[in-house]
Deep mutational scan, measured.
Amino acid sequence: GGHPVTTQMVETVQNLAPNLHPEQIRYSLENTGSVEETVERYLRGDEFSFPP
Rank of each mutant, 00 (worst) to 15 (best):
V39I: 15
E36L: 11
R41T: 05
T7C: 14
S28M: 14
R41S: 10
F50V: 04
E47A: 13
E40G: 10
F50H: 05
N15T: 12
V5E: 03
V35G: 01
L29K: 00
A17T: 08
P4I: 15
L20V: 02
L16H: 09
R41M: 10
S49W: 10
V5M: 04
T7E: 14
N31I: 15
P18N: 06
F50W: 15
R44G: 04
I25W: 00
R44I: 05
E23G: 07
L16T: 06
T7M: 14
I25S: 00
M9C: 08
P52Y: 09
V10F: 09
E23T: 09
N15Q: 15
P52G: 08
E23P: 02
T32F: 05
N31Q: 15
S34M: 03
S34R: 03
E11H: 10
S49C: 12
L29E: 00
L29N: 00
Y42C: 00
E23C: 15
P22I: 13
E36T: 11
N19S: 11
E11R: 12
F50P: 03
E40I: 14
E37A: 11
P51Y: 09
I25R: 01
T6L: 06
Y42T: 01
E11W: 11
P18E: 05
G2N: 13
L29V: 02
E30Y: 11
P52T: 08
P51T: 04
S34G: 04
E37K: 12
V10C: 08
L43W: 09
D46W: 12
A17R: 02
E11G: 07
T12Y: 15
R26M: 09
T32D: 03
G33R: 07
Q24S: 03
S34N: 09
S28K: 02
T12W: 15
E47S: 13
N15G: 12
S28D: 10
S28W: 08
V5C: 05
L20E: 02
Q8H: 11
L29Q: 02
H3Q: 10
F50Q: 03
Y27F: 12
P18V: 08
Q24E: 04
T7I: 14
T38H: 00
S49V: 14
T38M: 02
H21N: 08
V39L: 14
V10R: 04
N15M: 15
P52R: 07
P4F: 15
P52D: 08
T6N: 08
V39D: 01
E11L: 14
T7L: 15
R41V: 04
L43G: 04
I25P: 00
N31H: 13
E37V: 12
T7Q: 15
E30D: 06
G2Y: 13
E23Q: 10
L43V: 09
P52I: 08
V39Y: 12
R41W: 05
G2T: 13
D46S: 07
E23H: 09
T6F: 07
S49A: 15
N31S: 14
V13E: 00
D46V: 09
A17C: 15
A17I: 13
F48I: 04
G33L: 07
E40S: 13
A17H: 04
G33C: 07
Q14Y: 08
G45Q: 04
F48E: 01
G45A: 04
S34A: 04
Q8W: 13
M9I: 03
E37P: 00
R44M: 08
N19H: 11
H21D: 10
I25M: 00
V13M: 04
N15K: 15
T6I: 06
T32G: 07
F48Y: 02
P22R: 10
A17E: 01
E11T: 11
S49H: 13
H3T: 10
V5R: 02
V10D: 00
T32Q: 02
T12I: 14
Q8D: 11
E11C: 12
L20A: 02
I25V: 06
A17L: 13
L20G: 01
P18W: 09
H3C: 11
E11F: 10
R26K: 11
N19C: 14
E30R: 07
F48K: 00
Q8E: 14
Y42K: 00
E37G: 08
N31Y: 13
F50D: 03
V5W: 11
E37L: 13
R44Q: 07
H21V: 07
Q24A: 05
V10Q: 06
T38G: 01
F50C: 08
S49E: 14
E47C: 13
E30W: 12
E40Y: 14
S49N: 11
D46M: 11
Q8A: 12
E30Q: 13
N31T: 15
N15L: 15
E36C: 11
R41D: 03
T12H: 14
L16N: 06
G1M: 13
P22T: 09
Y42H: 03
E11P: 02
P18Q: 08
E30A: 12
E30K: 07
Y27L: 09
E37I: 13
E40R: 15
E40L: 15
A17D: 02
P22E: 11
G45P: 01
T7W: 15
L43S: 06
T6K: 04
R41E: 03
S28F: 06
M9S: 04
N15V: 14
P52E: 08
E23F: 10
P22W: 12
I25H: 00
Q8N: 10
F50Y: 10
H3M: 10
H3R: 12
E47Q: 13
E47T: 13
Q24W: 04
Q8R: 11
V35D: 01
E40F: 15
E30V: 08
L43E: 06
M9F: 02
P4T: 14
P4W: 15
T32L: 05
T7N: 13
L43A: 07
S49M: 14
T32Y: 06
G45W: 02
Y42Q: 00
T38W: 03
P4L: 14
H21Y: 07
L16I: 14
R26L: 08
I25N: 01
V39A: 05
V13C: 06
G2L: 14
H21I: 04
E30N: 07
Y42S: 01
S49R: 12
V10L: 11
Q24T: 02
D46I: 09
L16C: 10
E37W: 06
G2I: 14
N15I: 14
S28Y: 06
E37N: 07
P22D: 06
V5I: 11
P18T: 08
T7A: 15
N31P: 00
G1F: 13
H3N: 10
Q8P: 06
I25C: 04
H3E: 09
Q14T: 07
T32A: 04
Q24P: 01
N19E: 13
G1W: 14
Q14K: 12
Q14I: 09
Q14S: 10
G33A: 06
N19T: 12
Q14V: 08
E37H: 07
G33P: 02
M9D: 09
P51L: 04
V5Y: 12
T38N: 00
V13F: 01
G2W: 13
T6P: 05
Q8L: 14
R41H: 09
P18G: 07
E36F: 11
G45T: 01
Y42E: 01
L16K: 08
Q24R: 01
L29Y: 02
V35A: 06
L43F: 11
G45E: 02
G45R: 02
N31K: 13
R44A: 10
L16P: 00
P51N: 05
L29A: 00
E37R: 09
S34I: 02
T12S: 12
V10H: 03
R41G: 06
D46G: 07
E36M: 12
S49K: 14
